[in-house]
């Protein structure tokens, strides 16, 4: 599984969302499934999937799937 596939699977699982809806353009709070509460679950699942610990500033900054990739790159996850 590539990191992109892992990212999509993690978003899909954490947000209880069909994987086809997880695109770079998907943004935080644009759909009911990605609200502030599920955002906490998402961060936790991303940390597990990529074995990283995401700082609070990055938790706040993670406003889209594209942004999530950008942030994870800072933690040495390549896409």
């Amino acid at each position: 599984m590539t990191n992109t596939e892992k990212l999509i699977a993690t978003f899909s699982d954490a947000l209880t969302l069909d994987a086809s809806k997880v695109t770079d353009a998907l943004t935080y709070q644009s759909i009911p499934e990605w609200d502030s509460i599920s955002h906490m679950v998402l961060i936790s699942r991303l940390e597990e999937a990529f074995d990283v610990s995401i700082d609070t500033d990055d938790v706040i900054d993670m406003s889209s799937v594209a942004k999530a990739k950008e942030i994870l790159k800072k933690y040495n996850v390549s896409f």
Partner: peptide, 10 residues
């Protein structure tokens, strides 16, 4: 609490 929640989510 903020730090613990992160741990508890795991």
């Amino acid at each position: 609490s903020q730090l613990a929640v992160k741990s508890m989510l795991k």
